[in-house]
Simulated assay, not measured.
Amino acid sequence: MLIADPDPERRLALVEAIRDGITSVTAVGRVAANVDEPGAAAYDAIVFGFGRSAKDNAQMLDEIVSQFSDALPRLLFFTPHPDAFLQQVALHPALGDVPRADNFGQLGLLISAALPSDTQSEQILATEQVDNADLAGAKVLIVDDDIRNIYSLTSVLETYDIDVQHAERGRDGIALLEETPDVDVALIDIMMPEMDGYETMRRIRAMPAIAHIPLIAVTAKAMKGDRQKCLDAGASDYIAKPVDLDLLLALLRVWIGRARARAEPFAPALMTAI
């Protein structure tokens, strides 16, 4: 895969979000200065990252139209600031049908669909594009000091037969994970008393027995730098309040799929031992 994004922080975050040990990722600031259209043919998919800057967005779109018209079926747009992006893409109707993702969860699904369908890729696609029925039986931990948030999320997730556990403090959440390390995903609220979400995630990542568990940070607001701060603390992904339930389900599909894919290679060995 090729990533093109003029913002170094966002470019690095994209690389980390995509890198899975299987996919080869190349990142550049400006695709026009580093890759021409024949060179782009070597990539299965090309992700263009767009930010708030109208100037940067316009320049990137102009480059795509002028140099990559034949590569449109392999293009993906990452648009964490959709309003700023839509203002510019409206000037380029030909690019209106390019698939775009507003967050890493959506991007994971688009990338799964774009990758070649060899055996490994098919397995990744099968696990990451899990439909709602396949969420049944998944274990999700919610760590949030507001019982109202816990109740509302639990009531929704349980309709998909998800096994929901909860804790109202970071310390209690860590203790629950130690007791049940087979949790598929943990939702960690950032604004909590005593131990906030950042510290909770850092401590989880420092504990080998539970460090593998995907952590989705739940932020009260999506301010510039919040995403990177969450990732630096150990978050696998993040979502802002008020929680968009469709987006949350998309994130759960991605991370539950990855958790199950990671667990599958160990199953034959365990059966043999038994």
Rank of each mutant, 00 (worst) to 15 (best):
L141P: 07
H166S: 15
A41G: 00
L187T: 03
L76G: 06
L135S: 13
R258Y: 11
D196R: 10
V35R: 02
A186V: 15
I210A: 08
A167G: 05
E158Q: 15
K241E: 09
F77R: 09
A133V: 09
V243T: 08
Y160H: 11
M1K: 00
V143I: 15
C230K: 07
K139D: 14
R258M: 08
L76K: 06
A220M: 05
R100C: 08
V218D: 00
A217I: 03
A90F: 01
D5A: 10
A222W: 00
V15D: 00
L72T: 14
D83A: 11
I162G: 08
A220I: 02
D145T: 03
K139Y: 05
R74A: 03
Q87P: 01
I274F: 02
N57T: 15
A133R: 11
G234N: 05
A267P: 01
D5C: 14
A32R: 12
F104A: 08
P93N: 02
S121A: 12
P73V: 07
L109K: 05
S152E: 10
T272C: 04
A175Y: 02
L14F: 15
L157E: 06
I124W: 14
D226A: 05
E128G: 07
V35G: 03
V47I: 08
L177N: 05
E168Q: 09
V164H: 04
A71C: 09
P268W: 08
A222S: 10
A240E: 03
G96V: 03
D182N: 13
G137A: 10
L270M: 13
L91A: 11
F85S: 08
L2K: 10
I150D: 11
A90E: 14
D161C: 07
K55P: 00
A250E: 13
R262S: 15
E178G: 12
D244H: 09
A222K: 07
Q228S: 12
H81R: 12
L141V: 13
G170Q: 11
L76E: 10
P73D: 05
P73L: 04
F50R: 10
D144F: 03
A113V: 07
H166Q: 11
L153F: 07
D196F: 11
L12C: 01
Q129R: 13
R253C: 10
A54F: 01
L215Q: 13
A240N: 07
D161F: 12
I147Q: 14
R227F: 05
H92G: 04
I204Q: 08
I22S: 03
N34W: 03
G21C: 02
Y160T: 04
A84D: 12
A4M: 12
F77L: 10
S53I: 01
V156H: 04
I174M: 11
Q59R: 12
R260D: 07
A33G: 05
D161E: 14
F77H: 14
V98Y: 02
M191W: 06
V143F: 04
D97P: 03
G137M: 13
I46W: 10
A186C: 09
T159I: 11
L110A: 04
E16M: 14
F266P: 05
E9W: 12
L76D: 08
I150C: 13
P99H: 01
L249H: 13
G96E: 08
L177H: 06
D20M: 02
Q165F: 08
M201R: 06
D163K: 14
R11A: 14
A175E: 15
V89W: 09
G197E: 02
R258I: 04
E16Q: 12
M207Y: 03
A250G: 09
